[in-house]
Amino acid sequence: MKTGLIAIVCLGLLTGILAVPQATGQSGEVVMISYAGALQEPHRLYLVEPFERLHPGVKVRLVPDEAGEYVARVQAAAAAGRPSPVDLAPNGEPPHLRLIALGLLERTNRALVPNLKNVHQAFVEKTQGYGVPASYQLIGIAFNSKKVSKAPVGWKDLWDPAYRGKVGLTSTASNLGLGFLVATAKLNGGSETNLEPAWQAIKQLQPFVIAPNPTALAQLFEREEVVIGPLWSNDAAILASKGLPIKFVKPESGAMVIVSILSAIKGSQNMQLAHELLNNVLSVEYQAKAAAKPYFFGPTNVKVPVPLEAADYIPTTIAEVRRLQTVNWPVIVPNRAAIVERWNREFSH
């Protein structure tokens, strides 16, 4: 798995939009789940607004949902035999696998997504035929450079007594929290099949501050309620773009890379339009803008090079790429409910 990801990003380092089948004469509303806050801007500015200009009768409504609350609505509609209330949704690898198992995703019609041929096959394989690999993000260490005197170099620095009570974490209900749990396990001799070293190490990290989701954790950094902790590369970049003294470090053992997959939801009444959006999110034009400052979403289209200004947030050298870490999600996902339950029992109080 790690070798495949190395090949993917290397291709991006070494290197307009293809002709898109347009769904003309349509009208109505397309509902797309998106990110919260500033990270929604690439979807709105570079994906939705150009799309709406091409389709004057169509409105795309972006709905922020980091907790996956839309899934229950989609399940209820399917059980009642009604159309899905959601047309598209981005998911990290763990929830993507769960949604496949639940039968809630529509298989991608590759004939309607010609830009898929520009995405490295190893990324495409992660979709299992559902949706498209829209971007990748890193889990690394964010810190307040005015509050942290010595920049961290690895995960072990979070356990420095100087930061006790000022470390921020998210629950394992988030991909950020789950990824950090696996990273901690590996740091302490464990693995996806042996998380016990992580549980014991995180107990030693107490007291720490728990945020319900990554956006809330970023807000804690903004208010200086925490000074160091694992964070998405994108969230750290947005904080820095606001002029805040937030730096991002890719741990020496390797930052963790997670692919975001945009998928059409089964039962959508707008499948043609949904596929057009899937194709557009892979375009050179969209991905180049999403990879630029201040968002730094990792481009999955091999024709889009990583901009030099993204060096603090995305690997720009082959040596960095080789240090990237991945998670064996098919092993973790079936145990996620038990992992979240244990987290809540031991730490959420």
Results as ranks from 00 to 15, higher is better:
1 M>C: 07
4 G>D: 04
10 C>D: 11
15 T>M: 02
18 L>E: 00
20 V>S: 00
21 P>T: 00
22 Q>G: 06
26 Q>F: 01
28 G>C: 12
32 M>Y: 10
33 I>H: 02
38 A>F: 03
39 L>R: 09
42 P>Y: 07
42 P>M: 08
43 H>S: 15
43 H>I: 03
44 R>K: 13
44 R>W: 11
47 L>I: 13
51 F>K: 10
51 F>A: 15
53 R>N: 04
56 P>I: 08
56 P>E: 06
64 P>L: 03
65 D>I: 12
65 D>R: 12
73 R>S: 09
77 A>L: 06
80 A>G: 06
82 R>D: 03
84 S>F: 05
88 L>D: 02
89 A>V: 09
97 L>D: 11
100 I>E: 05
104 L>M: 12
104 L>Y: 10
107 R>P: 01
108 T>M: 00
111 A>P: 01
120 H>S: 09
121 Q>I: 14
125 E>M: 02
125 E>P: 05
126 K>D: 02
129 G>T: 05
133 P>C: 01
134 A>E: 15
138 L>F: 14
141 I>Y: 02
146 K>C: 06
147 K>L: 13
148 V>L: 10
153 V>N: 02
154 G>D: 04
154 G>P: 00
155 W>F: 09
155 W>K: 11
158 L>G: 09
159 W>M: 01
159 W>S: 02
163 Y>E: 04
164 R>N: 10
167 V>P: 00
169 L>C: 01
170 T>P: 00
177 G>A: 09
180 F>V: 02
185 A>K: 00
191 S>V: 05
194 N>A: 10
194 N>C: 02
195 L>Y: 08
199 W>A: 07
199 W>Q: 04
200 Q>M: 03
201 A>W: 02
203 K>E: 14
210 I>Q: 09
212 P>C: 05
217 L>A: 14
217 L>P: 00
222 E>D: 06
223 R>F: 12
225 E>Q: 10
226 V>Y: 14
228 I>L: 12
229 G>F: 00
230 P>M: 06
230 P>R: 14
232 W>P: 05
235 D>M: 11
239 L>Y: 07
241 S>W: 00
243 G>I: 11
243 G>F: 12
244 L>F: 14
246 I>F: 14
248 F>D: 00
249 V>R: 12
252 E>M: 15
254 G>F: 04
258 I>L: 15
260 S>H: 10
261 I>F: 12
262 L>V: 09
263 S>E: 05
263 S>K: 11
265 I>Q: 05
265 I>G: 04
267 G>H: 07
267 G>K: 05
268 S>M: 13
272 Q>L: 14
273 L>Y: 02
273 L>I: 13
274 A>S: 15
277 L>K: 01
278 L>V: 14
283 S>D: 06
283 S>N: 10
284 V>A: 00
287 Q>E: 03
295 Y>R: 13
296 F>R: 11
298 G>F: 01
302 V>L: 07
302 V>S: 04
304 V>T: 05
313 Y>S: 05
314 I>T: 11
314 I>D: 04
326 T>K: 11
327 V>P: 09
334 P>K: 06
336 R>C: 11
338 A>N: 07
341 E>F: 09
342 R>Y: 07
343 W>Q: 06
345 R>T: 10
347 F>W: 11
349 H>Q: 15
349 H>T: 03
